[in-house]
C-alpha cells in the first residue's frame, strides 16, 4: 500500500509527531514517502527508519500558511493511496482539502489503525469511539502521542520538486504570544489551574512548578472567563485545546465534562482538589485531597529535589 505523509514541522525542524506518523505507516506494512514543505526537516526525515522516499516540495506558497495553496502543491507531489498527516489545525486543513480534491474520504484524529484500512477515532469529544473501514484510497490525520515513533536508522533517497499554489490569505500582522511560555498542545507535561486557584496571581505557583518540569500551564474555562490575565489560549477542553500529554496535573479544577473532553486521553492524570467528591477524581490516576495552598509548596520542593 502506498502511503504519503505530510511532514509536520515546528519552526525549522521536523515536529516529533512526524516520526509517529512513520511508525503508524510502517505498522501497515508501508514504506511511506514523506513530503517536506520547502525541504524543512528533509534531512532528518531521510534518516528515519522505514521511510521509503523523502520529497522536498519547494514553492513560494510555503512562506505563510494557506491550506488551499499547500494542498495544491502537496497533492501534485503525492502519489495515489493513503494521504496521512498530523491532527493539528494545519494538518487537518491540508489533509481534508487533498481529500476533497481527490474525492476520497477523510478521517481525522485517528487513535487506532490497522490493515483493512480500519480506523478508530473519538466522537462526541471522546465520550464515544467510532470504528470505520475504508476500502479504497483515503486521507487521514493521526492524533499525536498515540502511535509509537519510528527510530533513526534509515537512509531514504531524497529528491526535490517545485510545486506551488495560489496564495489567497495575506498575513497583515503577527501578534506575539502573550507570553513566551510553552503552549499546552506542545507540552509533554501540563499543570492546569481552575477557579479553585482563587485568583490569577496564584497561577505564579503553577508557573514556577512548570518551569522546573519544562511543563506548560493550562486552565479551565471558568478560570479563563473569570480572569483577564489568563488568556483563552491556555484553555483546555471542549471549547479550548485538546491535549494529550504524558502527565496532566489538574489543580482546583472540578472536572466538568467539557474540561475532560480536552484532556481525558492524557496518559497519566493527577488531581489536587479540596473536595473529595469532585468529579475530576473519577478520571485521576492519583487524586490528592488537599487545598492547593497546602499542596503546591510541597509539590514544588519535591520536584526540585528530583533534579
Amino acid at each position: 500500500m502506498e502511503i504519503t505523509i505530510i511532514a509536520e514541522t515546528q519552526e525549522n525542524n521536523l515536529h516529533s509527531v512526524t516520526r509517529q506518523l512513520v511508525g503508524a505507516a510502517t505498522s501497515l506494512g508501508a514504506s511511506p514517502t514523506i513530503l517536506c514543505a520547502n525541504g524543512i526537516g528533509a534531512d532528518e526525515a531521510a534518516g528515519i527508519s522505514g521511510v521509503g522516499k523523502v520529497v522536498s516540495v519547494n514553492g513560494d506558497c510555503f512562506t505563510t500558511f494557506d491550506g488551499g495553496a499547500w494542498a495544491t502543491a502537496f497533492d501534485a507531489a503525492a502519489g495515489e493511496g493513503v494521504i496521512m498527516g498530523a491532527a493539528t489545525a494545519q494538518g487537518r486543513d491540508v489533509v481534508s482539502r487533498i481529500a476533497a480534491r481527490r474525492g476520497i474520504p477523510v478521517v481525522q484524529d485517528v487513535v487506532a489503525l490497522s490493515e483493512g484500512i480500519k480506523m478508530t477515532h473519538p466522537i462526541y469529544s471522546g465520550k464515544a469511539m467510532q470504528d470505520v473501514t475504508v476500502a479504497g484510497d483515503c486521507a487521514m490525520t493521526l492524533r499525536a502521542n498515540i502511535f509509537s515513533a519510528a527510530d533513526d536508522g534509515g537512509s531514504a533517497e531524497s529528491s526535490i520538486v517545485q510545486q506551488s499554489g495560489d496564495v489567497k490569505i495575506a498575513v497583515q500582522e503577527a501578534i506575539a504570544k502573550a507570553s513566551e511560555r510553552l503552549d499546552v498542545t506542545d507540552a509533554d507535561i501540563i499543570i492546569s489551574g481552575g477557579r479553585g486557584m482563587g485568583g490569577p496571581e496564584n497561577f505564579d505557583k503553577l508557573y514556577s512548578i512548570a518551569d522546573g518540569l519544562g511543563a506548560a500551564v493550562g486552565a479551565s474555562r471558568a478560570a479563563v472567563d473569570a480572569w483577564d490575565e489568563i488568556p483563552h489560549n491556555m484553555q483546555v477542553g471542549q471549547t479550548g485545546k485538546t491535549v494529550n500529554p504524558s502527565l496532566y496535573i489538574a489543580v482546583g479544577i472540578s472536572g466538568a465534562i467539557q474540561h475532560l473532553a480536552g484532556m481525558r486521553t492524557s496518559k497519566f492524570i493527577v488531581a489536587i482538589n479540596k473536595d473529595p467528591e469532585a468529579p475530576i477524581f473519577k478520571i485521576a490516576d492519583y487524586g490528592i485531597v488537599s487545598t492547593w495552598e497546602e499542596a503546591l509548596p510541597v509539590l514544588a520542593s519535591e520536584i526540585a529535589n528530583l533534579q
Binding site: I123, G126, M129, D131, T133, A284, Y286, S290
Partner: peptide, 24 residues
C-alpha cells in the same frame, strides 16, 4: 465510501489511587 463498523464507549479507566492531604 466509508463503512461505519460501530461505536463503542471509551475504555474505562481503572479507579485511581486517592491520597489524603499534602503529607502524601
Amino acid at each position: 465510501q466509508v463503512n461505519f463498523n460501530g461505536d463503542s464507549s471509551p475504555a474505562e479507566k481503572p479507579p485511581g489511587k486517592t491520597f489524603q492531604g499534602s503529607d502524601c
